[in-house]
Design a protein around this nucleic acid. Sequence first.
RNA 1: GCGCCUGUAGCUCAGUCGGAUAGAGCACCCGCCUUCUAAGCGGGUUGUCGCUGGUUCGAUUCCAGCCAGGCGCGCCA
Length: 548
Amino acid sequence: MSSLADQLAASIQGLVAAAIEKGELTGSAPESIVLERPKNRDHGDYATSIALQLAKAAGKNPREVATLLQGAIEQLPGVSKVDIAGPGFINITLDRANQAELVRAILSSGATYGYGQSLKGVAVNLEFISANPTGPLHLGHTRWAAVGDALGRVLKAAGAKVTQEFYINDRGRQMDLFGQSVQAAALGNPIPEDGYQGEYIKELAKIVVAENPGIATSEDFREAAYRVQLAEQQAVLETFHTKFDIWFSERSLHDSGAVDHGMEKLREQGHVFEQDGAVWLRTTDFGDDKDRVLIKENGELTYFASDTAYYINKRERGSDICIYMLGADHHGYIHRLRAVAACAGDNPDYNIHVLIGQLVKIMEGGEEVKLSKRAGTIITLAELVEKVGVDAARYTLIRYPVDTPMVMDIDILRSNTNENPVYYVQYAHARIAAVLRNVAELGIPTGLDHFDPAQLNHDRENQLLGTLAEFPRVVAQAAELREPHRVARYLEELAGVYHGFYADCRVLPLGDEAIAPIHSARANLCAATMQVIANGLDLLGVSAPERM
RNA sequence: GCGCCUGUAGCUCAGUCGGAUAGAGCACCCGCCUUCUAAGCGGGUUGUCGCUGGUUCGAUUCCAGCCAGGCGCGCCA
């Protein structure tokens, strides 16, 4: 389903091509024409600068070019007026009744309004969080838990086939230290140097001992505590509405032979070499600043070897695009991972996409809460949710682009005020729900056969319709750029426009006023708005309450 | 030294195929509920878009260099 704006843009492109054909213009027609929504509402519903772009090649004044196109654009269906402004902008005003047909489209599409096909048929592997199963998920993981899950939903809405995946780092030295730490806690011994110090280690020790009487070796402690800790992470993410299709164990990568297989594949591609007794991957062929070791001199595999094998494994499982979401402290991995893709014979500009999330600071009571990754004072995902709730936590983390560092103020998130944007959006939804309850009670007919689009000609209604029309574009762009925050920002704008409409356009009959077509029309407009807010919040994994 | 990210209003931040007078919230001031949810709406005040050049009809946006801040650069995991 293409939007009205897309249809218009295509039509205008046809007109430009025709003008060139007829010799009225010289130069080549652009591949596509962009219709933008002018900031200033006096500039119509849509505007294009196409005349300014064409003027030079045509050897004409931009306003002349615009004038040339003006008449033909005016004849297009759904267009009521075309103005030329400034240096040569073409401002288009839509026919209002025609625009109001959008309400019908939204209500019949329902929960899928806004969904598109831009990534149809593309299989995306979305890996995020991927924590060690050696402790609770903390604030850094939480940003990805929210953004990653929202991005997955957005990509699906754009038609992609998405696999959300959590890579469990359950192999290596950190796991051994973890086992030794839990064992020490259970026996009342001091935690080893470099071990895990947090309070939760003691709790794990108690659980492990209770469930496994007679447990003795640090390996057994490691395995038992691993299971408990992983289950806890899974449970917390469940409450945070973050879902994974696959929990992928690093161990399984080795056990299944996938690492050997990956290594073999890289050898075939000719980028593996030996030096100083170790086996290397020549990542510097593809932009990395140094080559990377796959097998150490002592014969052990590096963590990097797992990474490469895992990438190859994802691709062989059918993923076209592998998206990695990493913390800022891992940004050194960008070139490395892209080089891995290139070494495997892939196109790093298409098959792999590394997103880097900057750090999250958390403020409470005017002071920064310090984070310490493996020691005591960790703010965990569970604690954050306990403080502010799932909706506020998710929404706040999602509404900023991930490449900017962000500050979460616990005090603001706790407050039910306008400073807290999630309430602003949810309130709009609840407000509409209340209006529609009243509509039903008064018996105002709302079926689409009672919907007369010509009733909607107030400026506020027009503005609301224009904003609703943008939603599919926003979703497509959020998917394309991997930026779910765009959906959140759009919802804030939509909520604002609705509140403005609500202030000026009464939906229910006033006093003993008779029920008229305008009431049905507005009720349907409200229902359409509610649908779009609900769809948008769903893409963020945030609830859309009927009452607040 | 190399690499990634950031620099927009007093504060927190939006703003990508380059567009018209650079936006929002908070804060500050003033209005609006005896009929739809005031967690709302309307109005007022606030800017060398880090700096310097380049590209062009036009640059906060693209390019180069510089300045400032954050983070990282192991045969660790």
